[in-house]
Design a protein around this nucleic acid. Structure first.
Length: 299
DNA sequence: TTCCAGGTAACGC
DNA sequence: GCGTTACCTGGA
C-alpha cells in the first residue's frame, strides 16, 4: 500500500510519467506498486500514472510534484514554435509527446551529472543510490519502502575523496569532492546561478573542477529549468550527425551549438530531449519500441 | 583478456 | 583554438 494518495488531473498537452522518469534526466526513482518511489528534494514521494489523464501522488505533495515534473509548462505553445518541416523532430515529438523537462534541485542534479561521465545509465543509477544510502538522510513514509535524499554538499565534502572512491566513483571521486567543498564553503553559490543569464550561469558552473560544458548544460536544463541549454554528449552528437549532417566530415561542438540555435530556437534544450529520448530508444526509428522502453508489436 | 562507456583536465601544437 | 591522452570501474 502506498499510503494516502491524491490525484492530479492532467488536461491539455499529454504527460507520460514513465518516459519522463526514464529519459536520462534522473536516476533514483524505483519501480514499486505500478508506480515509482523516490525523493523530490528532502521529501519522499510515490508517483503513479495508471490512466493517461490522471497522475497519482502521495497526499499533500501535489504542488511539489507539479513543479518537479514541469506540469505548469504550456508545452503546446513551446512545441508549436518548433519548425514544422523538421521531420525528425516532429517524429520524435509524436512518438513521445508526454516527455517533460524535470526541475531537480540544483545540487542533486549537479552532483549526479558529475558522477555520470563515461558511465552507462545503470551505473549512474547504482552510484546515485549508493551515495544516497551511505550519506543521505533516510526518508520513511507510511507503507512505502524507505528512500534516501541526495546527500548535501557539506556531507559529501566531509566524507572525503577516499570514501567516495570506496563508493565506486573512480576518478570522479575527486571531481565530486572538490565541487562539494566549493559549494559547501560558498565559493560556488548555486542559488546565485539562478539569477545569472544562460552564458554567465554556464561559465559559473564550469568553474567547478570536474564540470565541463556538457555537465553544466545538463544542470541548467534539468536543474534550473533553462530550456535553452543544449548539452552535447556522444549520443546527441551521433543523432545530430545522422539526421542533419550525414555527409559532414568533422563536426565541432561549436558548430552543433550554433546549428541548434538556428534550427530549434530558444527552447532547443527541450527539442534535444525529445530527439535524445527517441533516438536512444528507437535507434532513430529503426527499432519498434514504445516511449517507456516497451517493445511494440509491429504490424 | 580486451574493449568500451551519456566527460574533463592537462598537455602539446 | 584544436587535437590527444590519461583517468576508475564494471559489464559485454
Amino acid at each position: 500500500m502506498a499510503g494516502a494518495l491524491e490525484q492530479i488531473p492532467l488536461d491539455g498537452w499529454p504527460f507520460d510519467l514513465a518516459a519522463t522518469l526514464g529519459s536520462g534526466q534522473v536516476f533514483h526513482w524505483q519501480a514499486w506498486e505500478g508506480g515509482w518511489v523516490g525523493t523530490i528534494g528532502e521529501e519522499g514521494v510515490f508517483l503513479r500514472q495508471r490512466d493517461p489523464g490522471v497522475l497519482e501522488c502521495s497526499a499533500g505533495k501535489a504542488a511539489v510534484v507539479r513543479h518537479y515534473l514541469g506540469l505548469e509548462e504550456d508545452l503546446a505553445a513551446v512545441v508549436a514554435g518548433f519548425p514544422a518541416d523538421d521531420e525528425a523532430l516532429q517524429r520524435a515529438i509524436a512518438w513521445c509527446p508526454g516527455l517533460r523537462l524535470i526541475r531537480q534541485p540544483a545540487w542533486e542534479c549537479l552532483a549526479t551529472f558529475i558522477t555520470s561521465s563515461l558511465k552507462q545509465v545503470p551505473q549512474i543509477r547504482a552510484i546515485s543510490l549508493r551515495l544516497r544510502e551511505r550519506l543521505g538522510e533516510v526518508v520513511r513514509l507510511e507503507g512505502m519502502p524507505c528512500v534516501w535524499g541526495y546527500p548535501r554538499a557539506e556531507v559529501i565534502a566531509a566524507a572525503g575523496e577516499e570514501f567516495l572512491r570506496g563508493c565506486g566513483l573512480g576518478y570522479r571521486a575527486a571531481f565530486l569532492h572538490r565541487s562539494a567543498v566549493a559549494v559547501a564553503e560558498g565559493s560556488c553559490d548555486l542559488r546565485a546561478v539562478a539569477g545569472l543569464g544562460d552564458a554567465a550561469a554556464l561559465a559559473e558552473l564550469c568553474r567547478l573542477h570536474g564540470v565541463g560544458e556538457k555537465v553544466a548544460s545538463c544542470v541548467l536544463l534539468f536543474g534550473y529549468g533553462r530550456s535553452g541549454a543544449f548539452p552535447i554528449d556522444v549520443w546527441i552528437e551521433r543523432v545530430l550527425r545522422e539526421l542533419y549532417f550525414p555527409r559532414a566530415r568533422k563536426l565541432t561542438h561549436a558548430r552543433l551549438d550554433r546549428f541548434a540555435w538556428k534550427q530549434f530556437g530558444p527552447h532547443r534544450g527541450l527539442a534535444q530531449q525529445f530527439l535524445f529520448h527517441w533516438a536512444r530508444l528507437t535507434d532513430c526509428g529503426r527499432r519498434a519500441v514504445g516511449p517507456a522502453g516497451d517493445v511494440m508489436v509491429v504490424g
